[in-house]
Amino acid sequence: MFAAHFAAGLAIRTAEPRVGIGPLLALAFLPDLLWLGLSAAGIELVAPAVWFDGWSHSVASILVLAALAAASWSRRGAGPAAAAGGAVLSHLPLDLPIHPAPLEWWPHAGAGVGAFARGWAGTAAALGKTNGWWTEAAVVAAGLAAYVLGARRIGIPLASAGAGAILVASLQLAFG
């Protein structure tokens, strides 16, 4: 998923405004950011026949990253620690159903979980989009609704939150 990670970061932002939007989005994308570097270095493999992303996207790796993020923000209190850890952890349920391959339990475990909806996700659905696209669109819509509805509570005017939501919705339309 892509736009859904933005939506998750924004939704968490309204729940815990003491963690900035930049760090929250970086944490929501942390496994993907690691994946980019590791793939370029040849440590993780992107060819479908030899797909391997266990260091950045295994269940254990994401749990460890979430724990490290929570520990890094723990000095600011339980709320920020939970938000930081939760932002990383959100990557797990969002990627689990339709990742290119099952998420390994730990790097090089050889076994994993997820990708169970991959076949269904690739099936064509309404308006020329796939089931996977519509699933992500629903997740994006829910996250953006939480952001827009909660924005005023953390001092962000509705118009500004709406502009941010339109940007993320556009990302889903263009790249989802």
Partner: peptide, 30 residues
């Protein structure tokens, strides 16, 4: 294996929207 061009392009797809979202928030708080 991904090239560094691919990495930069994908990185910008995350960084640029995140920067716009941060700017929107920063502008709203002024």
């Amino acid at each position: 294996m991904m090239t560094w061009h691919d990495v930069v392009a994908q990185l910008l797809l995350v960084v640029l929207p995140a920067a716009i979202l941060a700017l929107i928030e920063a502008g709203a708080r002024r």
